[in-house]
Amino acid sequence: MENQPMLKVTNLTKKFGNLVAVNNASMEVYPGEIVGLIGPNGAGKTTLFNAITGLYKPENGKVVFKGVNITGFLPHKICKLGMSRTFQVTRAFLHMTVEDTVRVGAYNRRNEKNVLAKVDEIIELCELGDIRTRVCGDLGLAQLRKVELARALATEPEMLLLDEAGAGLNATELSAFMTLLQSLNKDYHITFCVVEHVMQMVMGICQRIVVLDSGELIASGTPSEISHNQRVIEAYLGKRAVNYVN
C-alpha cells in the first residue's frame, strides 16, 4: 500500500487557445507526504491544481486519485472522494459567517445531526473560536487563509492541495501555520500538496519538492537536492545567474 501513489498525474496537458499552460506534466504524491510544487510565476502551478481538482478539463493526460481515474470529474465528486483545496487569491464567502462557511464544507461527510460537532471540532482545531460568528467580509488576509483551510478540512479530506496558503502572512503567522500543517499531517494523516512561493515554508515542511517551469516539470527531489539543482536555479534566476554562481 505504501508504495501506491495517492495522487498520480500522467502526461497532463492544458491549453488556453494557443497558450500551453501545462505541458505533459507527470507527478506523484504518496500517502502521508507533504509535497511542495514550486516554480516561477506563470509556470502553470495553479493551472495544474485546477486541472487536478476538476475546475479545468485537461486536453490530454490522466489524473488518478486513490486508484480512481478522476480525469474530467466535476470538483464536487473529487471532493467526495477525499480531495479538497484552497485558492491562491482567497475566495471566501464574504457574506457568510466563519462557522457557516465551515459548515458548508462539513456537510460533505456529515448530515444535519452530526454536522455541528464537526464544525466545532474544526473551529477549535484551527483556533477560529474568537471569530466564529464574524462575517468573512470583515476578516483580514491571515484569518481568511485560516478560514479557507478550515472549510477544506471540514470536508474531511485525505488529501489537501494548498495554493500559496502562506502568501501574505507575517513571520509569526507563518510559523503557526506551518505547525498546524505539520500536526494535520502527523495526527490527522492528511497528505498535502502545496504550491508555495515562501521558501521558508517549502524548505521547512516539505519532504519532497517538484519544480514546474513554463508548464513543464523540470525537477523533483528533496529540498536540499532541489536547492542545488542547475535547471531549477536557471529557471528561477536565468542562465546568466547560473554562470555567475559557478
Binding site: 471566501a92 464567502f93 462557511t101 458548508v104 456537510y107 444535519e112
Partner: peptide, 25 residues
C-alpha cells in the same frame, strides 16, 4: 438552515469554491 440553504448561500457567492467543498452546485 439546512444543507441546501448553506450550499445555496455559498454558491451564490462563489461557485468554484463551493464545488471543491463537495457541493454539487
Amino acid at each position: 438552515y439546512s444543507k441546501l440553504g448553506y450550499s445555496l448561500l455559498a454558491l451564490g457567492e462563489d461557485e468554484d469554491a463551493v464545488e471543491v467543498l463537495g457541493v454539487n452546485s
